[in-house]
């Protein structure tokens, strides 16, 4: 038989003053009055309210917030993506559709002729960003994917995704590719 470890708590008798409730009511009133006056203070930093007035005061997202995708561009404004299919292969929601095509520039092997993300299927997991070997797709735009009234508008094509895109600091193709003779 194991021993049951019973802890005996001493019940404190209420004193007469506590029994009469009057000092306790005054104490409670003190707390509510303090909250009331702090919260109507004209100085915002003294208030204890933590409410965001959401639509009027948008919340700040953290830097790691996964927002709408964007496709980064090269120095000459062309899409950075080389249509390697890593992202569409890895995508668990199967929402990225890429059709590759030959590029005119011999130093660039392929480019995406069609690059469509179905935002209704996307689960914002961020695996496409992890998979991308050339920093072409990012989710750091900090913007919501808007709501759609029409399913057709949920397919974001290459040009729409590039609108948000900027230049990447990473060198295209890494160190191993020889410099383009131009």
């Amino acid at each position: 038989m194991g021993e049951v470890n019973v802890k005996t708590l001493e019940q404190r008798e209420r004193t007469f003053l506590e029994q009469s409730y009057i000092p306790e009511i005054v104490k409670g009133l003190g707390v509510t009055v303090k909250h009331f006056f702090k919260n109507i203070s004209p100085f915002e930093d003294e208030r204890m309210t933590v409410t965001y007035n959401y639509p009027e005061e948008p919340t700040e997202y953290s830097d790691r917030y996964r927002g709408q995708h964007r496709l980064m561009v090269r120095e000459d404004g062309q899409v950075r993506c080389v249509a390697c299919m890593c992202c569409s292969t890895l995508c668990p929601a199967d929402c990225i559709h890429i059709e590759a095509a030959e590029h005119d520039d011999p130093s660039i092997e392929k480019y995406p002729e069609v690059f469509v993300i179905d935002q209704l299927r996307c689960i914002d997991c961020g695996l496409c960003v992890e998979a991308c070997p050339c920093d072409a797709i990012r989710m750091d735009s900090g913007e919501h994917v808007e709501a759609f009234g029409d399913r057709g508008k949920a397919f974001f094509d290459r040009d729409k995704l590039m609108e948000l895109g900027g230049q990447s600091l990473a060198e295209q193709g890494g160190d191993h590719i020889p410099e383009h003779p131009s």
Partner: peptide, 8 residues
């Protein structure tokens, strides 16, 4: 009541 309860 809202101010007492830290609401708006």
């Amino acid at each position: 009541s809202a101010r007492i309860q830290n609401r708006l």
